[in-house]
Amino acid sequence: MSDHAHPNPHAKDHHDEHGGSHGSMRDYVIGFLLSVILTAIPFWLVMTHAIADKGTTAIVIMAFAIVQIVVHMIYFLHMNTKSEGGWTVMALIFTIIIVVIALSGSLWVMHHLNTNMMPMVHDMGQLP
């Protein structure tokens, strides 16, 4: 990172030495309460079968998981676009892209392998 932002090397010692923000009591309590709610609802949905359709339930609990991950990122991991000059966010975005490619690619390819390359019974008779 450029030195121009801190022409005086000692200036950095005075303000926050890690560049990241620290949470307050309020942040942690809000994060905790949101997490409890966002955890309890999907468990309740699955345990009581509140939504009859399985596909809908799956989409709803995945949405809750994504929201809860964002809540954890903001309130517990104190992510913001300014910490470390934006490099933490850059690393996070890069990781998310890789994770999405790896997960969707693996599931997609392996699903097609499983469904299209299954040895069929009527094909078995034609084997030499």
Binding site: P9, G19, E84, V99, A102, L103, M110
Partner: peptide, 29 residues
């Protein structure tokens, strides 16, 4: 200053750890 880059370095480690878990999730999927 000593340790100024530790937090960013540790964050990058966590992101690489995230990839390990992504592979395990993919295997489970």
């Amino acid at each position: 200053p000593e340790g100024a880059s530790t937090m960013l370095g540790f964050w990058i480690y966590l992101m690489s750890d995230c990839l390990i878990f992504a592979m395990l999730f993919a295997a489970y999927g």
